[in-house]
Design a protein around this nucleic acid. Structure first.
Length: 124
RNA sequence: CUCGGCGUGUGGGCGUUCGCUUGUUCCUUCGGGAGUGAGAGGAAAGUCCGGACACCGUAGGGCAGGAUUCCUCGUGAAAACGGGGGCGCGGCAGGGUAACCGGCCGUGACGGAUAGUGUCACAGAAAAUAACCGCCUUGGGACUUGUCUCAGGGUAAGGGUGAAAAGGGGAGGUAAGAGCUCACCGCUGUAUUGGUAACAAUGCAGGCAAGAUAAACCCAAUCCGGUGCAAGGCAAAAUAGGGAAUCUGGCGGCCCGUCUUUGAUUCCGGGUAUGUCGCAUCUCGCUUCGGCGGGAACUUUGCUUCGGCGGGGUAGAUAAAUGAACGCACAGCCAAACGCUUCGGCGGGCGGCGGACAAAAUCCGGCUUAUAGCACUCCGAGGUCG
RNA sequence: CGGGCCGUAGCGCAGUCUGGUAGCGCACUUCGCUGGGGGUGAAGGGGUCGCAGGUUCAAAUCCUGUCGGCCCGA
């Protein structure tokens, strides 16, 4: 796994919270969901990749998870701090290369940052 | 030489950088950090079998249920696999006038149809206690005097139907027929011989009594307690030892027996489904001392605990670790110039694309299925040369 | 990891246990009733029974293997 254990999402309650309160961005071959936690919790961003059986066999599922984890690891600076990310993989991911997936991921991160920053300013 | 097929083996290599999981050593401000090792497969897959291991405790007996099924030898804990043989079926070539015979190759879930029950559509008289037509015959009647008709009897040789028609095709025999009789073949029983056995050969007898189906029920023999790592242990947390029904007994298919005992079972509702252990050092060969057993006192031989040496192996994740980027050669696919051409193509390689099937999840042994390319054995087809 | 169920006409399902004719509803085609549509009536077409092999005279059905889909169990 390209991400250490402290940066993985594990609890069912975390998934439920992100699913209900987070922002969802469609990126073609995957769905990007994320939520910025309050600042008193752990400082690092966290990730989880979901690949259902509809995506393909075990080899295809694991390969997609690894690529997206690698993208997350290399581009942590693109995210606001202490953000939880859930990526739902779709079956058509293998039509795109690693570089194409990375570009879509960075675009989604940029959209998320633009959405989240003004709300923070109004709250402040 | 090319192409195709069955099977077996192999299952992309090297290097740099950035990362993940984990064993171990050291340091630590107990958060972690540093060093050094290890890190998917032949099928990890499907979950079709068998076992180890764990728990339950009706593990005793019987019934039910399930599994297996020619013989023999070997490996193995068992499932299973392999060698050889027997029998049946199919194919090939050969011998023989023929019946048939032995040979090679392939193949078979290959116990039992005289233990019993069931089923056999349509067609057909009849589908398993066979009389429709036909053949033969007895008695009565009619008349055209050898035919018809009525009542009865015998007959499985012939007819057509069907997947299958009651041993086979001949000779004798008869009113017509019939294993009624006879020889051969086939069948059953029995004896002898050969073989460890399955089975085969021969003799004698019976005299056709015996259709198919057991991947229909079933019978015979052998084996099987149930549940499965979501087994189960520990720790922590949470909560309402709540409500209803049934039975007075309950207990993992049922009964007997046994054990325990005053509550038991089922349903509804609620809560928890977190961490950790299980969960990763075994196997093979040789051998010293010792122990047990065999043998006859010595020599010697079989098994085995703790050791020693050597070979091989040694992943342990849990929203689930093996990845990403780049470079170099080696396979493979597409393919531009250009050359040859019998105008069908062949050679050639600028350049581009780019690694088969598929990923551990308690472990092990099998089975089945999926597999690009390469190598090898065997088989088949085509071409060329001698 | 361990269980269970289902693949039959375009769709939803019977038939499988107990072998022999593949059927029902909606949909589809043609025709009639109507000026047309809807509705209704009549007639008709359409199925390798998931795939492969085997048992049998004969397989959707029995047996074995395999592919796909669905569900349940802490």
């Amino acid at each position: 796994m390209g991400v250490p254990a402290s940066q993985r999402l594990r609890k069912q309650s975390d998934f439920r919270q992100i699913r209900s309160q987070g922002i969802r961005i469609h990126c073609g071959s995957f769905i990007f969901q994320c939520l910025q936690r309050s600042e008193d919790t752990a400082a690092q961003s966290r990730l989880s990749v979901i690949a259902s059986r509809r995506v393909g066999n075990a080899v295809k599922r694991n390969y997609g998870k690894r690529m997206l984890r690698e993208i997350f690891r290399k581009n942590q600076a693109a995210l606001p701090p202490h953000t939880d990310v859930v990526i739902v993989l779709r079956g058509s991911y293998d039509t795109q290369s690693y570089a194409q997936l990375e570009a879509r991921y960075l675009k989604a991160c940029g959209n998320f940052s633009k959405n989240i920053v003004p709300t923070k300013e109004t709250e402040a």
